[in-house]
């Protein structure tokens, strides 16, 4: 058996999928940071808006959670939690690898972009606090695609029989 074959069995592929899924956290980290910087700017003007700005700041945080959920689901299917790890075929591993891709990739980009939309929403909140909900809706529109990616990830995961 070559080194390649011994490393890249089904289980490794599945774990790589889980790792990629959890990368959605990159998008959230950057997005929350962008929104957080804008929020801090708003607070210097009016500290009373903390609650409102916080809602907008955490919006891009969901991608990370979705990524985490998919990663956790894949690990769960592998049976790593609780000890009894199952042996996957290469095909099964590839399925789970594929399950990690949508939320991993879309999560990164939509997290960053949602952070930018949230930052714009924060500017809106600074000037017109009463219109804040509209800023939330604009930012949440970006998340649609992360949710769709999550849907595909979960559907692939559901469809993989181990």
């Amino acid at each position: 058996m070559t080194l390649f074959e011994s490393l890249f069995d089904g289980n490794t592929l599945a774990l790589l999928g889980a790792a990629i899924a959890s990368l959605a956290g990159i998008g959230s980290a950057i997005g929350v940071s962008i929104a957080g910087q804008a929020a801090a700017g708003v607070i210097t003007e009016d500290p009373k808006k903390f609650g409102k700005t916080l809602v907008l700041q955490v919006l891009p945080g969901t991608q990370g959670i979705y990524g985490f959920v998919v990663a956790f689901l894949i690990i769960l299917k592998l049976g790593m939690i609780g000890g009894g790890m199952v042996d996957l075929t290469v095909a099964q591993g590839a399925y789970l690898f594929a399950a990690g891709l949508p939320i991993g990739i879309v999560g990164i980009i939509s997290g960053i972009q949602q952070g930018k939309a949230a930052a714009a929403g924060l500017q809106l909140t600074a000037k017109r606090p009463d219109q804040m909900t509209k800023g939330v809706i604009y930012a949440a529109m970006v998340e649609t695609y992360a949710i769709l990616a999550l849907l595909i990830s979960i559907l692939i995961w559901l469809g993989t029989n181990v």
Partner: peptide, 19 residues
């Protein structure tokens, strides 16, 4: 389809928390 997606998200995240 977002109705399904958000519905699944709630259910799956809740299960992950419990697990």
């Amino acid at each position: 389809s977002r109705i399904l997606a958000l519905g699944l998200a709630t259910g799956v995240i809740a299960q992950v928390v419990n697990t």
